[in-house]
């Protein structure tokens, strides 16, 4: 039996050795990255209590991973990580150098470049260098508009200007944002960017105090994207809640949302969310009669139109 056990052990070890040898190393990299991430989280919990050598130690760890796996798809994200470590350390110059390295090395990756620029802008904000921050954010809008970060930037600029007490700049940013979102929708029709741009345009209108316009834009979205995959349950709930909040809570106007949902039901009587919208209409009518606050209907994940 001993001989048999030795043969079995040999086979198991041989299989292990062969499969380890054939492995391209991606798994090993993920393991090292995960361990580094754990250290990063530990530092992030209380950055002030962490000695300087821990920051440098983690940066060195990340640099070693880059050296060992230069061609790996995950490597590009490590430069962002290095920048974030220095952000935690409040060493903004080194942080920006890390983000800049990502920009320089991977100019063909718009999402990564947008993220790097966003962190660069953020580092300037932390130093209260708002003009430099805005330059970085504008660079995202100009060069990486068709990214998730790019889409959110015009809106963010409005918020930033308002936050730092520059209403004239905020007003200018909001006008630019409307032009930007309009252009994006025209340039990328029927894409997620067109969908997001319409939603963002509504948000800009709300920020400008043009509530009615924002509500109508969201109403248009409901009809336009009724059968689109982009109109997920979360999106429809978000749109309905926004319309209700802006219209009922802010304007005490029950009729506009009712008209929007009724119009939707007329155009899409067998839509999977018709029951949900009908209930919302009923709820709004009830609230209008009683003249009390708003309450939202719970929406199921999937609703049968035949119900």
């Amino acid at each position: 039996m001993k001989k048999t056990i030795i043969i079995f052990l040999f086979i198991l070890l041989a299989v292990f050795a062969v499969l380890t040898f054939l492995d391209k190393g991606e798994y090993g990299m993920e393991k090292q990255l995960w361990r580094a991430q754990k250290q990063f989280e530990q530092i992030a919990r209380d950055p002030k209590a962490v000695p300087d050598q821990n920051y440098e130690g983690l940066v060195n760890q990340y640099r070693k991973i880059i050296q060992r796996f230069p061609a790996n798809g995950l490597t590009r994200k490590i430069y962002i990580k290095i920048g974030k470590i220095y952000l935690l350390k409040k060493d903004y110059v080194k942080a920006r150098a890390g983000f800049q390295e990502a920009l320089t090395r991977y100019p063909d990756d718009p999402a990564l470049c947008a993220e790097a620029l966003m962190h660069i802008g953020n580092s300037f904000e932390l130093e209260a260098k708002y003009d430099e921050a805005k330059t970085a954010y504008r660079q995202i809008i100009g060069q990486y508009a068709a990214t998730d970060i790019g889409m959110s930037m015009p809106m963010y600029l409005i918020t930033l200007n308002s936050k730092i007490g520059r209403p004239a700049d905020a007003e200018k940013a909001s006008a630019e944002a409307l032009v930007f979102y309009d252009a994006i929708a025209k340039k990328n029709p029927e894409t997620k960017y067109a969908f997001a741009s319409q939603r963002m345009s509504a948000a800009v209108h709300f920020a400008r105090g043009d509530t009615q316009k924002g509500i109508h834009l969201l109403g248009q979205m409901l009809n336009r994207y009724a059968d689109s995959e982009m109109m997920t349950p979360q999106q429809i709930v978000l749109i309905v809640k926004t319309i209700n909040t802006m219209s009922v809570a802010n304007l005490k106007d029950y009729d506009t949302p009712i008209a929007i949902y009724q119009d939707f039901l007329n155009q899409h009587p067998r839509h999977q969310y018709s029951v949900y919208l009908q209930k919302t209409i009923n709820g709004l009518k009830e609230l209008k009669e009683k003249n009390i606050g708003i309450r939202f209907q719970a929406v199921p994940q999937s609703q049968n139109a035949q119900e």
């Binding site: 079995f8 086979i11 198991l12 299989v15 292990f16 499969l19 054939l22 492995d23 391209k24 991606e26 798994y27």
Partner: peptide, 13 residues
Amino acid sequence: FLIFELLFFAPRY
């Protein structure tokens, strides 16, 4: 053990 080993290496090349 062999099945365990194969499943262990399943996500790797």
